[in-house]
Amino acid sequence: MSRTGRTYTRHFDLDPRQHELLGVDLGEGLVRRALILGISLLVLWNGALFLVLGLPTIPTLTLYITPPLGVTFFGAQRSIRLDRRYNFTIWALTARYLSVGHRPIICGGRRAAHRSEWLGRRARWGRQLEWFADTPLGPLVERWLGPESAIPTGSGTALRLDTRTRLYGPDAVVRAYGRKALTTNEETRP
């Protein structure tokens, strides 16, 4: 009979809610994470647009409000791929990977990776920008990505390590090395 374990922690994920804001009753409340994200994005976006376009007018009011609200609405939802993360976190990690890459872990972190061992732009951006190759921007994108040879030959899917630990006693070591190796070491001692 096999036993099956289940994780119920996802069912107990309770988001804190803001039920009142500046004396205004919000009813069942807004999720605080979405509220903080929305307010911060609204301030940053409107600040940048204010510096570029000036005060909002009736035609530009949609440009001032819609992008931060859209990013807040879709970013504060749970990711479909990884249900423990929010979409905004997935977007931020993807943007970081595409812009900076990642530092490879060499020898379990015992040695820091040299800059030449990091993944290049072509290895990170190649698949996302393939459709630009047939456009007038194709040569410019190809120059920015670098040569095809910049992709490391060993890059690919992760290897699955299936190791098995064994403990050998002194009798197994003697059988492996033989009696002669053991007596030779004893004779060389002073």
Rank of each mutant, 00 (worst) to 15 (best):
G156C: 11
R164E: 15
P68F: 03
R160W: 11
G154V: 07
L137K: 09
R78I: 03
F50M: 11
V71L: 15
P56D: 02
W118M: 10
S149H: 11
H102V: 07
S149K: 11
H102E: 13
D171Y: 05
N46W: 09
P170T: 08
L182P: 02
L159T: 15
R33W: 00
P59C: 05
L44R: 02
N185H: 12
T157C: 07
R175C: 04
P139Y: 01
R33L: 03
E186Q: 12
I90C: 08
T72Q: 00
T157Q: 13
D162P: 11
E148F: 09
A172N: 05
G54R: 03
V141R: 04
R96K: 10
T57R: 14
G126I: 03
R85F: 13
R111S: 10
P147Y: 12
S2D: 11
L161H: 13
A172V: 08
C107Q: 14
G5Y: 14
A176K: 06
A133M: 06
V71S: 00
G47R: 05
L93D: 15
L161I: 15
G154A: 09
P104I: 01
R127N: 12
I106H: 01
T165A: 13
T9C: 05
R81H: 12
T7Q: 08
Y86F: 15
R143L: 12
R115L: 11
P56M: 00
A113N: 06
W125T: 02
R33M: 02
P147R: 12
Q128G: 03
P16A: 08
R33T: 06
P139R: 04
P16Q: 06
L119F: 07
R175D: 13
L21K: 03
W45H: 09
T66K: 07
E142W: 03
R17I: 03
L37E: 02
P56V: 02
A113D: 04
G75T: 03
R124A: 01
L129F: 07
F88E: 01
G101N: 01
